[in-house]
Design a protein around this nucleic acid. Sequence first.
DNA 1: TCCAGTTTCAATCAAAATCATTCACTTTCT
DNA 2: AGAAAGTGAATGATTTTGATTGAAACTGGA
Lengths: 250, 250
Amino acid sequence: MLVDQRRDSILEIAESKGYISLQQLVDEVGASESTIRRDLEYLDRIGQLKRTRGGAAYIGDSLTGFDDRRSRATEEKQRIGRKAAELIESGETVLFDGGTTTLEVTRYLNGKTLQVVTNSLPAANLLVGASNIELIFLGGYVYPKTGVALGSLTVEALKGVHARRLVMSVGGITEAGLFNSNSLLVETERQMMEAADEVIVVADSGKLGHSELAHLCPLDRVDRLVVDSGITEEWRRIVKEHGIELIIAT
Amino acid sequence: MLVDQRRDSILEIAESKGYISLQQLVDEVGASESTIRRDLEYLDRIGQLKRTRGGAAYIGDSLTGFDDRRSRATEEKQRIGRKAAELIESGETVLFDGGTTTLEVTRYLNGKTLQVVTNSLPAANLLVGASNIELIFLGGYVYPKTGVALGSLTVEALKGVHARRLVMSVGGITEAGLFNSNSLLVETERQMMEAADEVIVVADSGKLGHSELAHLCPLDRVDRLVVDSGITEEWRRIVKEHGIELIIAT
DNA sequence: TCCAGTTTCAATCAAAATCATTCACTTTCT
DNA sequence: AGAAAGTGAATGATTTTGATTGAAACTGGA
C-alpha cells in the first residue's frame, strides 16, 4: 500500500469516528505501530488531525456547517424535494434560489442533464461534481447565515440570464402573496421571477397562512406550488382560485 | 507496444484506481520497472499524474473533484499560505482566485477583518461562516474540476470590482511570464489583475521554469512572489531582475 | 500523596523497499 | 552505416518501515 493511500485511509477512519486510537489504526490499516505513529505526526503537522495521547482526533472543517442541515431536513421537505424534481426535464435551464427546501430539490436531480443557475452556495456545492450538470453561479454578497448570494451584483447577473423554470422557497404564504424574512433576498428573488418562464414554489404546509417581513409578490405570479399533504381544504381552494397548479407530495 | 499507447494505459489504470503502485503497473503493462519509472516521471512532468514514492496518484475528477477535506495540501503550500496571509492587513479588500495554494492562504486569514472577493467555490465555503469577513462571490460558469467560476459572466462581474490586493496561483512560471493550463481561467485572471492594485503570486518552487498552455502575463506585472525555500539561486536573480519582491516561506 | 504497574512515547537501528544513475543492447530514422 | 532515442538490467544511494529500547505519562490502590 502506498504512503498517501495509507494516510488517506487513516483520515477516512478518523473522520467517520471522530476519535481513533493508535491501536485501532494499527489493526485496521495493517501497518506497524511505528508507521502509524509517524503518519499521525505528519497528519497533525499539516493540520488534518489533532494528535492526542493514545490516538488522534479528526478536525472537522468549518464548512460542515452546511452539511448538517442535510440531516435536519424533515421527511416532508425531502418528499417535496423529490416531487418537485420530477417536474424538471432533461435539457432545461433551471434557476434555484437558496432555502433548505429548494436544496432538497437539487438532491433529486440525479441523472438529468441540466443547466443549473443558482445563487445558493450549498446548492452549488452539491451540484459542482455532477458530470451532467452545467453549473452557473450567480455572484454577489454572500449572506453568512445561509450562504446565499444577494444584492445588486446578483441582480445584475440575473439580468443576463433566462431560464425555463425557477424553483423557489419562501418564508410564508398568505392570500396577499409570498413573503420572505429579508428584503435583500426578496429583491433578488423578484429578479429571478423575471428571468424564468415558470415559477415553481416549494413550501411545507406550515408556511401557509404565515406572513413575514418582506412582501415578495402576489399569489398569481406563481405557476405551480409543491406542498406536503398537510395542506388544508381551505388552502387548496385558495390556491386553485389563483390559477396555481397544486402538486401534493405524498 | 508504442510509447504513447503504454502511457495511455498507465493513465487508464491510474484513473480507475486512483492510486497505483509501480509494481502493479509493471505486472499489468508488461514493461520493465525502469520503463514504467520513466513513464511515471514523464506523466508527472506534464501534470497528468502525481508521482509518489512507490507509485503514482491520479490527478483529476475521478472523485468528487475539489473536496478540499480530502485533498491534503503539502507542507510547503501551507507554509506559503501562512506567509502570504501575513501580507494582508485588516480592513482591506482582497481578491482571491482559485487554486489550491491560494486556498491555503484563505485558511490563515483568521481574525482579520476583510472584504474578500473570490471566484473559488472552495474558498467561499471556507470563508462564508467567518463573522469578520464580508464575502463577495464572483459568479459565472463553475468549472467542475476545480470549483472555480470562469467565463464572461465572471469577467463582467469583475469590472465592477476594485481591490487592494490580488492573491493568485499559477500553473507555471518562466522568464516569459506566468502560465496556466486553461485559457478561460487566464482570461478571468487577467481581469482580476486589472481590478487589483497589487498582485501577489503564490507558487511552490516546482512551478518555476515550468510552462503551461496559456500565457497569462509577463513577469513584471507581478508585485510580490511568495515561494518555498526550494527556489534556486538563478531564479532568485531572475525574480529580482524583474522588480518582484521575493518572499520565501520557511 | 505516593508508589507500582501499565500504557504511550520518542529515539535508534537494521532490514526492506524504492530510487537515481549508469551502461550495454535494441530499435528507428537518416 | 551511424546517430539518436528507447529499453532493461545492475549498481549503489536513499527513504521507508518495523522492531526494540528506555524514558515519560497516565492509572488505580494504599
